[in-house]
Amino acid sequence: MADRKHGRDSIRIKIPVVQEDLEKLEIGMVVYLDGLVYTGREGVYRKVVEEGADLPAGVAQLSNANFHCSPAAAVNDDGSYSVGGVTATASFRFSRYMAEWLRRSNARIIIGKGGMSVEDYRDILVPAGAIYLTTVGYGTGALLGRGIRGVRAVHWLEELGNAQAMWVFEVENFGPFIVESDLAGNSLFEQQGKLINANLDKLYENLKAPALGRYGETDDRKDELI
């Protein structure tokens, strides 16, 4: 189902995602999701990858889309949930958990902020048949909130707290996201970064280095911090 959104190709994908749909995704495409999506960040990864806890029953069977985020949400007095929105958190910090995580969860779509390194795509996501979707902005919390139709379950809420718990959302037309890395491990951020790097030397041409340096500092602006 191809469409246009602010001048870009956009597509709706059903979760659990199938191989055939993943193959349609090219970097730079705009994606919306339907089905179940679940969150994961430090708390969940430490619990599963480091402590060896089992994934909650059913999660891996019902969804293969894992979102690096946590919601603006509250637990109501009757035990139901109010979810205002979700906003991604930076994904590069979870690199160390990803190989084992993908093996355990069978996730094929990772959603987050800022992408991961091309080395991570090559060594971890591509072998697992997974792609990466980046959120837009960042901070389209309200748009993403509109796409959440309900909360299917919240795991480890007591133990990990609201922000670190695993939330399982029922979503419809949930997005927009941009394909940052495809099945081949191509990276939109890397491609764009290379184009920008080409101008940097000229920008710094007449600006001399400061008198006092800093340990660990790189003077190569083409380097990334992540």
């Binding site: 603006a72 929105g85 906003t87 901070g139 919390g141 309200a142 909130g145 927009p176």
Partner: peptide, 24 residues
């Protein structure tokens, strides 16, 4: 430009629905 336009969509959605612009 796509990002800027999407952010404006997001601000409209937040004000219309009375939900936070950004969940962080």
């Amino acid at each position: 430009c796509f990002v800027l336009q999407t952010m404006m969509d997001n601000w409209n959605a937040a004000s219309e629905d009375r939900r936070p612009m950004c969940a962080d």
